[in-house]
């Protein structure tokens, strides 16, 4: 939780939208990246969505400072940029976790328990749809049909597709990550000691 707080950003009818506030250091990096991306585009309204897509591709999400910067560069009100970012499902306002879980909620998956898989992730991670855990390790999203209906219900774990996911499989997936992180932390600790 160090240094990371949840700030209430704006309320829209779909519920609360909040962002994890970037630190000053992160802000500078974000602005640098955005400036670089903006350099490659004409300041034309038609290019706004591709620019937002580029920023999200690079940073993983659309930070508030980035949207403000883009609005200034394109000479349009910031609300127009924010409007697009919240209108389209692709854009996220929260930084994604190191590992992303995308639970498929397509028709075939829903009918055989996609919502049960989603509930299991929510319960285990104690976060809601579209949120990131406070330690930024995991984020949870709902996606609509990844086209693997014959192995429903499907969860996309980072880039790997897991089929026929049950709550016990959810536990297994998370356990595997915890194991990995544990080992990494142990390794780091050992190296540190050797260094001393």
């Amino acid at each position: 939780m160090q240094g990371v707080t949840k700030r209430h950003y704006v309320i829209i009818s779909k519920g609360d939208v909040f962002v994890l506030k970037p630190s000053e250091n992160e802000k500078e990096i974000i602005i640098e990246h955005v400036a670089e991306i903006l350099g490659g585009w004409r300041a034309d309204r038609e290019n706004l969505i591709p620019i937002l897509q580029d920023v999200q591709d690079r940073l993983g999400y659309l930070p508030g400072v980035a949207m403000e910067k883009i609005a200034t560069a394109m000479d349009i009100p910031a609300v127009d940029v924010f409007g697009l970012a919240t209108f389209y499902n692709q854009f996220r306002l929260n930084p994604p976790g190191d590992h992303q879980f995308k639970v498929c909620m397509g028709t075939a998956c829903y009918m055989v328990g996609g919502n049960i898989a989603m509930d299991s992730f929510k319960r285990r991670l104690s976060i809601g749809e579209g949120d990131t855990t406070p330690d930024r390790k995991f984020s949870l999203e709902r996606v609509v049909c990844v086209g693997c209906c014959s192995i429903a219900p499907v969860v996309v774990v980072d880039d790997m597709i897991e089929g026929k996911v049950t709550p016990t499989r959810v536990d297994g997936i998370l356990l595997a990550f915890e194991d990995k992180h544990q080992k990494k932390d142990d390794n780091k600790g050992n190296q540190g000691q050797e260094g001393v």
């Binding site: 909620m105 397509g106 075939a108 609509v144 049909c145 086209g147 209906c149």
Partner: peptide
């Protein structure tokens, strides 16, 4: 293709 159960266009 937005229908959550169709994937022929993608295919």
């Amino acid at each position: 293709e937005g229908d959550p159960g169709a994937f022929m266009d993608r295919s």
